[in-house]
């Protein structure tokens, strides 16, 4: 047995399980994500939301089929963050129905090795999510679990469990996705990553995606979660999304993971055009820097 370094290089693929469970061929999507260099995807399990999809978890076989889906994506080297709740809630008339959903996901994912984490909720403090009984959900054992993410720049769901998700604000997001997630990791004493970036159609500059991913790998548990419009409904990336996705992965892979163990510092002053220079220095004096561009 050995422990090998792993950085989260994830993409939104919210509707992926729903597509697969509905009988659609997701092979082209999986091939594309894997060939781009992603090692994980973020998948939702119960929703009816425009531009994402309609995923009814009450369909026969919905829970029992989840391990087979996980095995399918494992063929492409992909882990998955499985998210239980995201409002509005058309499929859970009561809190007990929500708890049942959570328990069934938790049960069925026992023994699945390519689970990144089982996440309770997407943005706990977003108004459609009020009423989810987060304090009544059992904490999973034997698998990594997240109590959930918050909305922009708010705390992850507390108390944090094994890992946690963060959202950066829009301004200077390309540095905050890593830096602010690192601060939460320091505060919560667990791995944290930004599990939903600003969307690519809101900022299509490839250098921002490169820098955001690179600084995140250096500063926290990984690049986090790339978030394009196509990731919402899990279709093929096209046009500028492809450019940004390539930049994101290249940025993530540009950082040698041994430097995650180094001491953090910020190098000043910032040269023109540079927002921040982040550095981690190992005990032997070697260091790695990421320059985050404006």
């Amino acid at each position: 047995m050995s422990l090998e370094r792993f950085a989260v290089i994830c993409t939104s693929d919210f509707n992926l399980y729903n597509r697969w469970f509905s009988g659609e061929d997701i092979t082209p999507v999986l091939e594309q994500r894997a060939s781009l260099g992603f090692n994980s995807c973020r998948v939702w399990t119960a929703y009816r939301i425009d531009l994402i999809g309609d995923c009814d978890p009450h369909r026969p076989g919905f829970y029992a089929s989840l391990p087979e889906f996980m095995e399918t994506i494992a063929q492409y080297g992909l882990y998955a963050e499985i998210t239980a709740f995201t409002g509005p809630y058309v499929y859970f008339p009561t809190q007990q129905a929500m708890i049942d959903h959570w328990n069934r996901l938790d049960d069925v994912l026992n023994g699945v090795t390519n689970l990144l984490d089982l996440e309770a909720i997407n943005e706990w403090d977003n108004p459609p999510n009020f009423g989810v009984p987060l304090d009544q959900l059992r904490r999973p054992v034997g698998k990594l679990a997240s109590h959930g993410s918050g909305a922009q720049d708010s705390p992850p769901t507390l108390p944090a469990w094994d890992v946690a998700g963060y959202r950066s604000p829009g301004s200077e997001w390309q540095r905050k996705v890593g830096h602010n997630a690192m601060e939460w990791a320091d505060n919560l004493h667990c791995p944290v990553w930004t599990n939903e970036y600003p969307r690519t159609d809101n900022d299509p500059k490839p250098e921002h995606w490169f820098d955001g991913a690179a600084s995140s790998v250096l500063l926290c548990a990984g690049a986090g979660c790339f978030h394009p419009p196509e990731g919402k409904n899990s279709t093929l990336f096209t046009n500028q999304t492809l450019v940004c996705a390539s930049a994101f992965v290249q940025g993530a892979q540009s950082v040698p993971l041994e430097f995650q163990d180094g001491a953090y510092s910020r190098v000043e002053p910032n040269p023109p055009g540079i927002l921040r220079i982040y550095r981690r220095t190992l005990s032997d004096g070697r260091f790695h820097e990421v320059r985050v561009r404006e």
């Binding site: 047995m1 422990l3 090998e4 792993f6 095995e71 063929q75 390519n114 548990a221």
Partner: peptide, 22 residues
């Protein structure tokens, strides 16, 4: 034949994750 791929389980290692490789 279809390969049965088993990815290494992820484990906590301080503030980062690692793969527990058999």
């Amino acid at each position: 034949s279809t390969a049965s791929v088993t990815l290494p389980r992820l484990v906590l290692n301080g503030d980062v994750l690692k793969q527990d490789v058999p």
